[in-house]
Design a protein around this nucleic acid. Sequence first.
DNA 1: TGGCTGGATGTGAACGGTAACATTGTGCAA
DNA 2: TTGCACAATGTTACCGTTCACATCCAGCCA
Lengths: 337, 337
Amino acid sequence: MRDDPTPRRPTLDEVAERAGVSRTAASRVLNNAPNVSRAKREAVLSAISELGYVPNPTARALATQQAGAVALIISGEDPAVLADPFYGQVIAGASTVLEETDLHLVLCLATSARGQVRVRQLLRARAVDGVMLMSLRGDDPLTGLALAAGVPAVFGGKPLHREVPYYVDVDNVLGARQATEHLISRGRTRIATLTGPLDTEVGQARRRGYLEAMTLAGLPYRAEEGGDFTERGGVAAMEALLARHPDLDAVFAANDNMAAGALRVLHRAGRAVPTEVAVAGFDGLTVSENTEPPLTTVHQPIRNLGREMTRMLLALIAGERPSPLILPTTLVQRDST
Amino acid sequence: MRDDPTPRRPTLDEVAERAGVSRTAASRVLNNAPNVSRAKREAVLSAISELGYVPNPTARALATQQAGAVALIISGEDPAVLADPFYGQVIAGASTVLEETDLHLVLCLATSARGQVRVRQLLRARAVDGVMLMSLRGDDPLTGLALAAGVPAVFGGKPLHREVPYYVDVDNVLGARQATEHLISRGRTRIATLTGPLDTEVGQARRRGYLEAMTLAGLPYRAEEGGDFTERGGVAAMEALLARHPDLDAVFAANDNMAAGALRVLHRAGRAVPTEVAVAGFDGLTVSENTEPPLTTVHQPIRNLGREMTRMLLALIAGERPSPLILPTTLVQRDST
DNA sequence: TGGCTGGATGTGAACGGTAACATTGTGCAA
DNA sequence: TTGCACAATGTTACCGTTCACATCCAGCCA
């Protein structure tokens, strides 16, 4: 079944020899470049299929000075960030776009010291033709590294405190405002918020959206507690919130995970949802369908985020100068409000 | 800020020249090979840091005939499979192991026709030093392709109807048996199961575990419905199950997603969980914590799965012949049973 | 018929490393 | 002192492509 230990794959030279042409001619056929006679082209083509020739991507990469791959770099404290299905969606989106090209996707987790080092090497060695970076904290050194590396870089989500030329983001402010306004339209006035980490742009933006809505509606009530986008964090934050603001009648959680945690706390505390307390989340992941009751949430087009980041990166690699992109969100109304 | 358009990174030749040694000597220092005098080594080292030299991975790959990367290939009908946090965990596990090596992780979704073609190319072109394959259906052509490609390949989960030399799997049969026996120990006798797709080994194995437990306990009751590991599928299957076997007093769902769906159906149908119907799942993902009530489930060490697959692949690449590995599962008891 | 144009073709030099092999120099046993 | 093993070092081929450039040749116009 298995061939000899080292079948030594055919090279372009062998193809050329078999077809009775020069290596260059064969190369031309491969990259269907002009200036090859019909006869030679066919000779090469059949030599290729007879020999089962497959071009060596490494050699090609060396000659063309292009890696043939782009990286998706995910930063974070802990490899567990990937447990969030969010990234799966981003990856899926990126993949569908890359599928149409001849670029591969290399995945880098910069979640440990060692991981950071590897990313740095990746960038410095120009091992990829471009990078997409996600979930960077405000002070993440990766932002600077990526920009300094001079390799095409697209950011998923605007980094905090830093201007970057190319990014795709979701309209977090507007989405949060929508959610809060929805709660207001339900007659709630004492609306609290569980914020995300405030050293991220997402965390800040969603909080801002909440504040905008409250201000615009002329509601003076303010109550917030910081979370970390995990359900566990949501539980802790909701407990604190409830202790300090027992009069709240609605909660806008900055993501679904925290909202799920909040629901459980409210449930334990005997607060009926949505009658006594209404809850809205943000993300629109499947978590939000599984909660009790199903969660009203702001759906963000995550798959699209991945797709658009990739498209932007491809444009960048192609030498264009794409504009930053902000994707819209939509409110999904379920039973928690 | 940004340097010249093409700063042209320094090459090993330039390092060597600056250090006053031959390129070979410089190369030796780089790979800290023996037979380099202390003086030269230091000269090279300082030349490297003065020039900011970073070796070119592509050139190295061409010379060593090693790609410097391994691929994780995820098969499936739909890019949406990645929405399952399962894969995030596998990826995280794989990453932590790869971090310690100088191999990169390239991620391939073989979820579309185009994706399949790309994977085929990847394998044929030997663009990676090894591959890990996941979630292959029984008749997945990828299995054969990977084996035929002659590239080190590790399977995550034993493919159905096919002997493969290297795989890491979870003890699905035992886990399912544990779950079912747990239900039995709770005094249930009319236990039904929501199976996974029966054209996968996982689906088959978990069903087998259920049957084993029932048989061993001398319980004649049999009721099953097929699902597809999604929550939506779980809902449909549970509805059918309830219609055909209204007398059931417990359900073993082959994964948490389906269990979550089942819980919702039971809730709607007014069957109290766990008093009237007990429910157990499989996976131990966060979904299982968020259900109402929290789900008793068989926890499988997914992160470990990723880690062990990667370790096995590394061993394989190093020329060893590792044995297949079966990872244990643990029952996590919550409120649904 | 000679010069010119332009497509087809091949030559040879990159691309940036690694490694087999040859060469030199040194200390030590015979 | 000769011979030898062995560390240090350099020479050179090689990995498998792409591509700039030179060459050749046919066709066309003056």
